[in-house]
Nucleic acid binder design. Structure first.
Length: 465
RNA sequence: UCCUCAAUAGCUCAGCUGGUAGAGCAUGCGGCUGUUAACCGCAGGGUCGUAGGUUCGAGUCCUACUUGAGGAGCCA
């Protein structure tokens, strides 16, 4: 492979290659032939744009064989790199030899035309060869690396929290059971219930719905940590922004309050956007042209402007002013509906906005109780087009208050014994949030359906490929 | 889980108040000295999602089911 030149190199730094012989390898996206010459648009996987290969009858022995090739064929081509100023592409390769490495028969499903996202989902193994999915998945990769770089530069410790969890009381929706019991004839107790003591782990276990509680343990040792891994929800939800398997980023910071948490979330999102804009200009340009016309302008604006902040109480007051435009009523104490969130971020602020200090009744038990006795130090970051992209809070570090909250919610203390110990031994104020990685990718690309930003999506009733 | 809509050629779709199917692209063949989702000509390709029902006759109307999509709830 040493003698293969990548299309990325040719586009990014063409000068050393001009008028030189190089060899490239890739897949034919389109082939157009005429009597004496033809053109191949070659994608080699390293770069979004295709390399145009020109081949002529008088300089290519196998001209007729090459001219018959179809979309999808894998070829290795050698030729001279030529600058083509004024043409639609800056350079092209004038081939001296083209060899077929892998044939592609005429029933190849991908055509040089626009396919529906539904059809492409049915051929998830081939769809990364399309412009849209190629853009989405390179952006996904670059964004993931940007996240690691952001935290690494700030000396956060990257923690691998468990995928299989023994606590079935995290309270974030339906969970998938993990078991080696015979599902036809599971071991049962005398009372007829399933005997999980005879299961692999000696207890009932699930796939994780959040790494947060484990993350808190590490934050109280390393101060600043983050997790970045898969998460599973068995909710039977069928929407454009829910999947059964998705990835989540969960930082946790110690000696920090809600304001520190919000600044971290804002800095993180801006850093990701900056990295993607600078490393994936071709992909963003494509998405901005074919997926969402306003994408590029919005990303540039968000990466340079400050996010808004509004308390839940003030937000409800604003929503009540325009309540006639909503189909769900608004009042203090209710959870904000999607339409409410979108009004706040798209109409009122017209940029990302943090909504903070929610009523404690609609938020999780571990959130820091504010002095007013009725709200908690929680924050949701809402972005135009998507809605909630980040949800976080300062955590309750006071053992007595946490115990009291568990009792109010009728939760069992013994299920949280190790978590409660974190408050007994050197407890400090701390905070964190969860960032849904797929929703971030949707925001970065303008793609409307979560199934099109996950390579092989798992959703209700669908786990193909 | 609830509500709504859809299913016709490999893909994207048209097919009116019921009278047994069309286009573009793709594919195959031919043409074209610079194309770029190329263009021009010809050709092949469909038991209209499945199962029932109404009718002389169903792609079209009715029922059920399957699959997909959109919205809601839940959330990331």
């Amino acid at each position: 492979m040493d003698n293969i030149t990548s299309v990325r190199q040719l586009y990014r730094q063409p000068e050393p290659y001009l008028d030189q012989l190089v060899t490239v390898s890739g897949w034919i996206r389109t082939l157009r032939d005429q009597k004496q010459f033809g053109f191949i648009s070659l994608n080699d996987g390293t770069f979004f744009n295709n390399l145009q290969i020109v081949f002529a009858r008088d300089s290519l022995a196998n001209f007729d064989a090459i001219a018959r090739l179809g979309t999808g064929t894998a070829v290795v081509a050698t030729g001279r790199v030529v600058a083509t100023p004024g043409a639609r592409q800056p350079i092209e390769l004038q081939a001296t030899s083209i060899a077929v490495e892998g044939e592609c028969p005429p029933d190849y499903p991908l055509q040089p035309k626009r396919h529906s996202p539904e059809f492409l989902r049915s051929i998830a193994h081939l769809r990364p060869r399309t412009n849209l999915l190629a853009a989405v998945f390179r952006i996904r990769s670059v964004a993931a690396f940007a996240i690691h770089r952001f935290f690494n530069e700030r000396h956060f410790v990257y923690v691998h929290t468990p995928i299989i969890t023994g606590s079935d009381a995290e309270g974030a929706g339906q969970m998938f059971t993990v078991t080696t019991l015979d599902v036809d004839k599971p071991a049962r107790k005398p009372d007829g219930t399933i005997d999980f003591e005879r299961d692999f782990f000696g207890k009932h276990t699930n796939l994780t719905v959040s790494g947060q509680l484990n993350g808190e343990a590490f934050a109280l040792a390393f101060r600043n940590i983050y997790t970045f891994g898969p998460t599973f929800r068995a909710e039977n939800s069928n929407t454009v922004k829910h999947a059964a398997e998705f990835w989540m980023i969960e930082p946790e910071i110690a000696f920090a309050d809600l304001g520190d948490d919000m600044r971290l979330a804002e800095d993180l999102i801006k850093a990701i956007i900056r990295d993607v804009l600078s490393e994936c200009p071709e992909e963003i340009a494509f998405c901005s042209q074919f997926v969402d016309k306003g994408l590029l302008g919005r990303l540039e604006q968000v990466s340079t402007s400050d996010f808004g902040t509004i308390t839940y109480t003030d937000a409800v007051a604003e929503l009540v002013k325009v309540k006639d435009r909503f189909s769900y009523p608004v009042s203090w104490g209710c959870d904000l509906q999607t339409e409410h969130e979108r009004y706040l971020t798209e109409q009122l602020f017209q940029k990302p906005v943090f909504v903070i200090d929610y009523p404690k009744e609609i938020k999780a038990f571990y959130m820091k109780q504010n002095d007013d006795g009725r709200t908690v130090a929680a924050m949701d970051c809402l972005v135009p087009g998507i809605g909630e992209i980040v949800g976080g809070s300062q955590r309750e570090e006071d053992l007595a208050k946490l115990l009291q909250r568990l009792a109010e919610l009728d939760m069992r203390e013994e299920d949280y014994s190790w978590y409660l110990q974190l408050r007994r031994y050197g407890s400090v104020r701390h905070a964190g949030f969860g960032l849904g990685f797929e929703r971030l990718i949707m925001y970065l690309t303008g793609v409307a359906n979560i199934r099109d930003v996950i390579p092989f999506p798992r959703t209700t009733g669908s786990a193909d490929f």
